[in-house]
Every structure is written in C-alpha cells, then in structure tokens.
C-alpha cells in the first residue's frame, strides 16, 4: 500500500491543493479529468482527517463543487434546450477560471518572495529615536498609566458625549481596524497624541467604545505607549521607544 508513502504538504487552501493534484498528475488544466482529480482530492481530505488536521470549511465547499461538476458531466445533454441557443458550457469552466486566476497570484507571490529575499539583505538607516517623542520628555515625569486609568478617563469622556435622542439610525461606520489605523496615522504625523484632543471628535457611544477597543488592541500589540502626566493628569499616547532590533 502506497498510502503510507504520501508526504504531507501544507496547502494554503483548496485551490492550492487542486493545483498540486493537477501538476502531480500532469494533466492539462483546461481539460481536467474531474472524476480522477475529485477522487484524489477526497482521498487527501480523508487523509487530513485521519491525521486529525482541522479541515477548513473551504476544503469541504470545494469537495462539494467538485462532486457537483462531476455529476453534471455524467448527465446526458438535454436536447430540448438546444433551441434556446444556449451554447453548451463546460461545467468545469468556472473552476478552471478560478484556478488560473489563483495560479497567477501564486506566481506573483513567488516573485515577491525572491524580491523579499533580495531586499532583506539590504539594510537601511536605523533610526534610534523617532522624532517628537524625546523632545518633551522632561515635562513628562510620567508614570505608566494602568488600564484602570484609561477606563476612568474613558468613563469621564463618555459623559461628555452629547445625547442626541433623535438619531436612531444605526451606522456601522466604526470599526476597530479603522480606528487603529486612524490612531497610528495620527501618531506618525504628530508623534504624540493627547487623549482629550482626540476624544472631543467622538460623536457616539458606539464610536467611543470602538475607539477604546482600538486603543487596548494597540497597547496589546505594543504599538503604542500610554502615559499619564501625574495623577488625574493628561493621558498621552505615543509610540514605544524602539528596541535595538531592526524591524521593517
């Protein structure tokens, strides 16, 4: 049994696996022997299951698609519809299109990989201290503010949000991603942000909550440092001092 000889390769997804099978079987991508490829695809899924790998839903969806195509190819063409002038389309067409599209980007990814390797051998200037952080450090004999300081500032600020009873339309305008990006962009421009200065822009409770989550997320990722100048003082958001470890 050659079952045990199969070397497991990690696939990025169902398309990746299909491309692999097509290449391995040396079949033409424009004329895929669906029955055979489907069989191998399912064997592979079975194999993943045996190894207790988590089979992502995407793999199962593709399995269903393959079986559907296979069944459609087995069905005889319905002659009655010939009058409608609908050309017989190959049930495989859509899948082939997707495979080719994905294959292109796989190739580009390969090109990028080479570029990355080349580029990673080249070092640019290492900047030890970003501008705008050290300049006013004397004024800030700050201690590190805790999450609780942040929460109390947050509650304080929530009170100041104008209550507008007439707005009931729910808008999903605010996402953590967006706020994260906003904070980082502002930091890039200004170096330091004061909590109160951005807070007054916030219009709704939802936005405030999302904004707060974004702050916590950034702290967790060590993308920002929150400091408070004295008890009950200003809360300052800045970028962390870089460690001596070149980072792209």
């Amino acid at each position: 049994m050659n079952k045990y000889k199969v070397k497991l390769k990690v696939f990025e997804g169902p398309l990746d696996l299909l491309l692999y099978l097509i290449k391995k079987n040396e079949v033409n991508i424009y004329d895929i022997p669906v029955a055979e490829i489907t069989k191998q695809y399912l064997t592979y899924l079975e194999f993943m299951r045996e190894l207790d790998l988590n089979i992502a839903g995407d793999f199962l969806v593709m399995a269903a698609t393959l079986l559907y195509i296979k069944s459609r190819m087995l069905l005889p063409q319905e002659e009655e519809f010939m009058d409608d002038e609908i050309p017989d389309e190959d049930p495989r067409e859509e899948l082939v299109k997707k495979l080719l599209e994905y294959k292109k980007f796989k190739e580009v990814a390969g090109i990028l990989k080479e570029k990355e390797t080349e580029s990673s051998d080249v070092f640019k200037r290492y900047v030890a201290v970003p501008e705008g952080i050290m300049e006013d450090d004397e004024e800030c004999q700050g201690f590190e503010a805790s999450i609780f300081d942040l929460i109390s500032a947050f509650t304080e600020a929530l009170k100041n949000i104008p209550k507008d009873d007439f707005k009931v339309v729910l808008d999903a305008e605010h996402t953590v991603e967006e706020k994260t990006e906003f904070i980082l962009t502002l930091l890039d421009q200004k170096g330091v942000i004061y909590f109160k200065n951005i807070w007054y822009r916030i219009r709704s409770r939802l936005e405030a909550v999302v904004f707060f989550l974004a702050l916590l997320e950034l702290i967790r990722l060590k993308k920002i440092i929150i400091r408070q100048i004295g008890i009950f003082g200003e809360i300052k958001i800045s970028k962390p001092l870089p460690v001596l470890n070149y980072e792209l």
Partner: peptide, 22 residues
Amino acid sequence: FQGGRKEHLSRAALETVAIVAY
C-alpha cells in the same frame, strides 16, 4: 540588528499581498 535571523512573510501573506497589489 536581527539576532542573526532572517525575517520573512508566510506564503499566505505573500499571496494575499500580491492580490492586494494588483
């Protein structure tokens, strides 16, 4: 600067960023 390591993106990341680029 990197403790001797060579950093690189995963294949998933390369594919994704390639698609975004185009």
